[in-house]
Design a protein around this nucleic acid. Structure first.
Lengths: 226, 226
DNA sequence: TAGATTGTTAATCGATTAACAATC
DNA sequence: TAGATTGTTAATCGATTAACAATC
């Protein structure tokens, strides 16, 4: 019998034409929720349930599904597996992404050891520092290398992504250097604003931004509620 | 001579009535840029310059300033110091916020040692774990305490903010526990979606979300550019 | 079938941008 | 003064929501 796509078949990345910015930003949370529900053995989830977890409107969830070209089943909802796989396909999480970490401080080490990255195709291929005391030490099976070697390794392994965990002042020079060697994306954990050519993508993880939002909330609490 | 507010005087928090959500989200980046420019000794910055750094429209910058009740000087721009102080006042960064870290793994340690928090009034008052091997060890001058003591410390010190760096499965139970002891905000570094009462604010730092956005970009690069 | 749920269109809301007058 | 820049209003754009028909 000929195999036809079932109504809740995952859209391949190509099938997802375009997606709104706002919808794009919600994908990681959808993905995480799908993983949690899969662990619980659930097969379907309704837009109502999703909307309650994400604290957004039910219609918005259905709009997001439509953007992803995912079709649900009346009376049942959306296939959890399909939704997860569609997001993974769309974001390219099924193909591996090799990355190097620059900076062997606490944060760099914490990221090198983060066990979850595997699930998203992120492979940490090396970690670099300029401190002789750190060079040669073992981090989760990786040997810390001299940052002098960084560019060579980028070229050898055709690395496209750098994870930046260096002190602020080193951020821009290292970024310039690795871009010259072919890097296309920088995951920036420093508080430095980086300047890069148009073909390079930056993602700033300004850790302190999260605190600021909470501080605002805590400070504006009515006194009697404190 | 009577002191009158100069045209670029900082608005006190009360003076900033309300601010759009989108504008609120930009405050941390404005703040960071102001710090960098102060270090360089600059006094004023124009909306054009800011718009270029942030890659947003010039008018939007002026709208944000208006939201913050900050007035610029024609021909000069906005006072860097005023802008920084207004944001700090608005977000409550001038008053200290005491917090406890739960989880003494790599990430918990990295956060406990993060030197930048001081500048934002964030004071890490303790770090907790349930692993006997970690309890009693020193992290940046703090002694890791047994998580059994957590609630007691929250109450003693009237802690309102918890920084959560525990394994996924421990996230919800610990959250429930500290909320019962009076905590009002949770800075969640675990990938667990948390359920909390309405009066508690959550900030999720889903680390992996940043990677997903970069993965999408890298995977959708035209082949000849790879 | 009735009920639950999806899917889509039109209306609304909020954020951004264009245009231009006001100011130093 | 001319030029640079702010400040504000109206127009536009994009995202969200309400309403309701379609489906199992």
């Amino acid at each position: 019998m000929e195999r036809r796509p079932s109504s809740e078949e995952a859209a391949s990345p190509q099938e997802v034409k375009s997606i709104s910015k706002a919808s794009f930003r919600r994908l990681p949370r959808y993905h995480q929720i799908m993983r949690a529900f899969e662990d619980l053995g659930r097969k379907y989830i309704s837009s109502k349930e999703l909307s309650e977890i994400l604290e957004i409107n039910e219609t918005l969830v259905r709009k997001d599904m439509a953007d992803l070209s995912i079709r649900g089943k009346p009376n049942q909802g959306y296939s959890i597996q399909t939704l997860r796989q569609t997001i993974e396909g769309f974001l390219g999480l099924k193909e591996p992404t090799e990355a190097l970490i620059v900076g062997g401080g606490h944060l760099g080490k914490a990221l090198a050891m983060y066990p979850g990255f595997d699930n998203y195709g992120l492979r940490i291929m090396g970690i670099f520092d300029n401190d002789p005391a750190k060079i040669g030490s073992d981090v989760n099976g990786l040997i810390v290398e001299d940052v002098e070697q960084l560019c060579r390794r980028v070229e050898e392994k055709q690395i496209k992504l750098i994870i930046l965990c260096v002190p602020k002042d080193a951020a821009q020079p290292i970024t310039d250097e690795v871009i010259a060697c072919g890097v296309r994306a920088v995951w920036n954990f420093t508080p430095q604003e980086l300047h890069v050519p148009k073909h390079v993508r930056i993602r700033n993880e300004q850790i302190v931004a999260g605190f600021m939002a909470l501080s605002y909330y805590l400070k504006s609490l009515p006194v009697e509620e404190m």
